[in-house]
């Protein structure tokens, strides 16, 4: 069984309040704050699809979709 991989990453900008929680705890530094004080994915290729940003976001602004666990890369 392979690790689930990233299928899609969506950040709903209007809901993001720029708290920085997702940026601070992303294990692979995928996210950064942009000039308007919103989080943005700048290195999606490094995303390991752990989903922690989605689960911790207090504004429910992030959706991380993964490939099926069974699926071959």
């Amino acid at each position: 069984m392979t690790r689930p991989k990233l299928k899609s990453f969506h950040l709903q900008r209007e809901w993001c309040k720029g708290c920085g929680i997702c940026v601070a705890f992303c294990p692979t530094s995928v996210l950064e704050m942009d000039s308007q004080g919103k989080a943005t994915a700048v290195r999606l290729e490094a995303c390991i699809a752990c989903g922690m940003c989605m689960l911790r976001c207090p504004d429910l602004a992030i959706t991380v979709e993964t490939t099926d666990k069974e699926e071959k890369p």
Binding site: K17, C19, G20, I21, L55, R56, C57, P58, L60
Partner: peptide
């Protein structure tokens, strides 16, 4: 809720 308020994470 304010930016970074934990109540949002509880809702999540």
């Amino acid at each position: 809720w304010c930016p970074g308020c934990g109540h949002g994470t509880v809702l999540n």
